[in-house]
Simulated scan of single mutants.
Amino acid sequence: MGTLVGQGRCLTCPIRPQSLFGCLEEKELKLIEDFQTRIIKFEEGDTIYTEGERLGLIYTLRSGHVKLTKFNSEGNAQIVRLVKPGDLFGYEKLIADASYMHTAEALEEIELCQLSVDNLNKLRGESSAVNQAITERALMQVMRTEEHLTQVGLLKSKARLAWFLLDWVGNSDEPVAMPLSRRELGQYLGLTVETISRHFAEWKRQSIVAEKQGTLQILERDTLNEVVTSE
């Protein structure tokens, strides 16, 4: 269930520029605060919601990372999305009043903002900016999903992993958090643990990437880019 750590303060929230509400004016942000958004903490491995539940809640991630997973009838898992700080998730209820389509699980200690769908729908009725922001977020996620499916479908294993690492790290030259295990990377990229471990071992021997205490650092960005483009 998570632990309540406070009430959301949209006006002073450090991730507001990255969040759904980054485009809103002060008067609209005060309306959200009146809805008493809650800040909830979850520990690594905690389940936020499960596929098929109908909780009537929507979430914005404040810190950490979350994986969204689907399971087949045999219990095999496929990670379909990785949620980063500022991302909105659980919005199936918002768009179609549907049950959750995935199971959401914390990859590490996280904090999130929790808002009821009923309250957000009230705000949508009062603010065209909120409606536009929700539409843009949903469209952005469709584009991300399409990019992921394209790369997973077209790239061979080595290029697929290189593409993911470059995308995950972004422009940072410093170590960044990597909360995904080899197994979880495989569930996201459609690769075996053995294949991922082999590529990592090769790149670490060649000082292309470095791993330390749950972080990943790309040391030779051009080399990984060449791996992607060569396939």
Rank of each mutant, 00 (worst) to 15 (best):
T3Y: 07
L4C: 11
Q7H: 09
Q7F: 09
T12W: 00
T12V: 02
C13T: 10
C13Q: 09
I15H: 06
I15M: 09
R16A: 00
Q18H: 04
S19Y: 00
F21P: 03
C23Y: 04
L24T: 02
L24W: 00
L24Y: 01
E28I: 05
L29I: 04
L31H: 12
E33W: 05
D34N: 08
F35W: 14
R38S: 10
R38T: 11
R38A: 10
R38W: 12
I39G: 10
I40T: 04
I40A: 01
K41V: 13
G45F: 14
T47M: 07
I48S: 05
Y49S: 13
E51I: 08
R54W: 11
L55W: 08
Y59K: 01
T60W: 09
T60I: 02
T60N: 07
S63R: 07
S63E: 12
V66E: 00
V66K: 04
T69I: 06
K70M: 12
F71A: 07
N72F: 14
S73V: 15
N76D: 15
N76L: 08
N76Q: 15
A77L: 05
I79W: 12
I79E: 04
I79Q: 06
R81T: 11
R81M: 11
L82Y: 06
L82Q: 13
V83D: 07
G86M: 05
F89D: 02
F89S: 02
E92D: 13
K93N: 08
K93G: 02
L94R: 02
A98F: 03
S99L: 09
Y100I: 09
H102F: 15
T103G: 13
E105T: 14
A106F: 03
A106Y: 06
A106M: 07
E108K: 08
E108C: 08
E109R: 15
I110P: 06
I110M: 10
L112W: 05
Q114L: 07
Q114S: 13
Q114G: 06
L115R: 00
L115Y: 01
S116R: 09
L120W: 02
N121K: 11
R124E: 01
G125S: 02
G125D: 05
S127L: 04
N131V: 01
Q132P: 11
A133G: 03
I134V: 13
E136I: 07
R137W: 01
L139A: 02
L139D: 03
E146F: 01
H148E: 11
Q151H: 14
K156R: 12
S157L: 09
S157E: 04
R160C: 03
A162H: 12
L165R: 06
L166Y: 06
L166S: 07
W168M: 03
W168C: 03
V169P: 05
N171I: 12
E174R: 03
V176M: 00
V176A: 01
V176E: 00
L180M: 15
S181F: 03
R182P: 08
G186A: 12
T192D: 15
T192S: 14
T195I: 08
T195K: 02
T195W: 01
S197C: 09
R198Q: 09
W203L: 14
R205G: 07
Q206S: 15
V209M: 00
V209R: 02
K212A: 07
G214L: 15
G214Q: 13
T215E: 05
T215A: 06
Q217I: 04
I218W: 10
D222P: 12
T223N: 10
L224P: 04
L224S: 09
N225T: 08
E226F: 13
V228S: 08
V228A: 04
T229M: 14
T229R: 15
S230D: 14
